[in-house]
Amino acid sequence: MSEVRVMKEGKKSKKQIESTLEEKNSSGYDTDSLENILSIEQLKKRVTDQFGEDARLILDSIDEVEGIILRREVREKGEFDDSKAIIHLSGLSKKYQSTGMSPVDALKEVDLSIVEGEMVAVIGPSGSGKSTLLQMMGALDIPTSGAVRINFQELSKMNSKQLTEFRSQTVGFVFQKFNLIPNLTALENVSIAMESTKMNRQERRARAAELLKEVGLNERMSHLPGQLSGGEQQRVSIARALANHPKIIYADEPTGSLDSRASKKIISLFDRIRRNFNTTIIIVTHNHSIAKHCDRTVKIKDGRIR
């Protein structure tokens, strides 16, 4: 329990951290993690003073170090509390039946819990059921059997309208092939995700612009997907996934179509998102180096979690 709390505190804003530190000083409440964060905050300030314009990039690197420290603690010191799991799968199975073909078990009796704010890598060979697992968790497909509880709601009990709202408000998807709408600009691709909300057009566009700025595409907003590089398209896709402040982001091979440099940027972006918005992030990947950035790695083979 204490590890979970530590991790969450680690993702609070600077002000909250300072407040916690003040509390620590006055109450004598002590954790190694908070001390680490304190030193990191001091380091950030020094780096910003010294490097000015480039400070953000360096701070990102520091953020990564911070994340590594926190995740290491989580891995070393204990397990999450399942009752607080934002994602809970029990006995989840999915069977695909094609005409004239024998049925294929994509998932077999999968049990999995993921707590809020966790960044989890789902890793496994091709055809192991990784993407199917992600689709079940994101309400993109219906399981053959078993239950999916997301954000304390049973997906199977939701009607079509509720599922649509769930996809819009609770989760965000990032796909390997980006899946941007080709005849919409970057800005429109992001703002279209907000069309189901009560925001008016101006508000949607303003929010989309803000998100694109956040992912470093403020000068590429009016470009069509075909005019953007793979890495840029994936960043648009991430901005789209963030549009409605989702609690969970599902990323299916998000770096699968990118070179190593672009991949690194994307992972760094996920890290920052997780830290800034306390978003739970599930990444399906082949790439073990990406898995190292995550709090936890779930290995899947032949439809079963190993």
Binding site: G138, L140, K161, T164, E165, F166, R167, S168, Q169, G172, F173, F175, N179, L180, I181, P182, I192, A193, E195, S196, R240, A241, A243, N244
Partner: peptide, 16 residues
């Protein structure tokens, strides 16, 4: 159809 799938996945209502 793929685009329709994307729009459904990002939570756009059928009417839209």
């Amino acid at each position: 159809v793929n685009e329709i799938g994307v729009l459904k996945a990002i939570g756009l209502p059928n009417t839209k």
